[in-house]
């Protein structure tokens, strides 16, 4: 199942990428693929912004805005002005 399209905030800096493949191993949704020893976003819409690739990248080539996609926490943050991402 897929969620809303064209919203995932994930970027791969192909200049920094060394092609180690760790991101592909840790990604739970097969978002990243390898082409000529450089990682690229094959299925960006399937990204759940868990941040596993970002945390495991040894050269810090991936940037993801991580957080729990919880509607209640987002609504709560509107009223509390705090950046809570948990219910």
């Amino acid at each position: 199942m897929e969620y809303i399209r064209n919203v995932a905030k994930i970027e791969i800096n192909s200049d920094k990428c060394t092609g180690c493949g760790l991101c592909i191993n840790v990604c739970p949704h097969g978002v990243i693929s390898m082409d000529d020893k450089v990682a690229f976003l094959a299925n960006k819409d399937r990204c759940i912004e868990c941040g596993a690739c970002d945390n495991n990248c040894p050269v810090d080539a991936i940037e993801v805005e991580t957080g729990v996609g919880c509607a209640y926490a987002i609504i709560k943050s509107w009223f509390n002005s705090s950046k809570t991402n948990c219910c």
């Binding site: 759940i48 996609g69 987002i74």
Partner: peptide, 20 residues
């Protein structure tokens, strides 16, 4: 229904922000 976004394995923070 909207409150179930946090209970699935395929939703993302950016998507939920947009939907909310």
């Amino acid at each position: 229904a909207l409150n179930f976004t946090g209970s699935t394995t395929f939703t993302s923070l950016s998507g939920v922000k947009k939907e909310t």
